[in-house]
């Protein structure tokens, strides 16, 4: 008989590591494509950064940093969201969803593994882009509060993981339309969150959406930390909102996903071909 691990929290974390290792192996196997995606993302961030080079020279650093910070933060948050939200779509595509979901583990173990991978993957990609941008623009981060910016990123990760968990239900309940719907959701968040502009420029009827998007608070706080050197105390209101959103969105996302799974098991939508 094989040794089956126990029920402790450490054992559960070890089991959820299966997802991290599997996705790492997939990335390694498709290293060529991964390189293409990273090059595309680096070029995309550089292109956006060059928009800021236009204009008065004395405020160029600030403009470039404003745009680049938006592009990098969005790169991280969207990678995080995408990896979590698309995890089910991937399993469907490969035909492994039934096998993975039949594992004798609470669903939280699976989703925790997906989230761990999302954070690691998003972080590595963003770090590569940041290195490229720093070299290209010679940006000065002398007055920036990097720790506060990192703390903002950590706080916002919770909210984005929660949104990703909720969005992952879409490919679960609708095999054909679910995955495109997650992309539409992601696009709307990009539009309303002030990634490349201040949300004050949005039409009045769109602006309320910016208040409920965690990305709005992430970008505002991170930019304050990077451009103005704002500390944790100054960022506290935004950080509290982000943490509160995370505390609400993670259990909500998990509950939505669990309800979706029950629906899929009742209607037979877990099956490979819908």
């Amino acid at each position: 008989m094989s040794k089956v691990r126990g029920e402790s929290l450490v054992d559960k974390v070890k089991s959820s590591y299966a997802l991290v290792q599997r996705n790492y192996n997939l990335v390694r196997r498709d290293a060529g494509w991964e390189l293409v995606f990273i090059v595309y993302e680096v070029v995309n961030v550089l292109t956006i950064g060059f928009i800021g080079v236009n204009g008065p020279k004395e405020t160029m650093n600030e403009r470039v940093l404003y745009l680049v910070a938006g592009a990098l933060l969005w790169g991280f948050l969207s990678a995080l969201f995408h990896e979590v939200a698309e995890s089910v779509a991937w399993e469907r595509w490969e035909g492994t969803i039934e096998y993975s979901f039949m594992a004798p583990q609470p669903r939280g173990v699976y989703m925790f593994g997906v989230c761990m991978w999302g954070i690691l993957y998003g972080f590595v990609r963003t770090a590569i882009c940041l290195a490229a941008v720093t070299l290209a623009f010679q940006i000065s981060l002398a007055g920036a509060n990097l720790w506060a910016a990192l703390l903002t990123l950590a706080a916002s990760s919770l909210a984005f993981l929660g949104m990703g968990l909720a969005a992952a239900v879409l490919p679960l309940i609708s095999p054909e339309k679910g995955s495109p719907a997650t992309h539409i959701f992601q696009a709307v968040v990009l539009l309303v969150s002030g990634v490349y502009y201040d949300v004050s420029v949005l039409p009045a009827w769109v602006r309320p959406l910016s208040y409920v998007s965690p990305a709005t608070y992430t970008l505002r706080a991170a930019r304050a930390a990077l451009l103005e050197g704002a500390g944790v105390r100054a960022l506290a209101p935004d950080l509290i909102i982000l943490l509160a959103l995370g505390v609400v969105l993670i259990p909500m996302g998990f509950a939505v996903f669990s309800a979706g799974e029950r629906y899929a098991m009742r209607t037979g939508k877990l099956k490979r071909n819908g």
Partner: peptide
Amino acid sequence: YAARLYGLD
């Protein structure tokens, strides 16, 4: 992957 997910060493 299966071994880890199914709680095996």
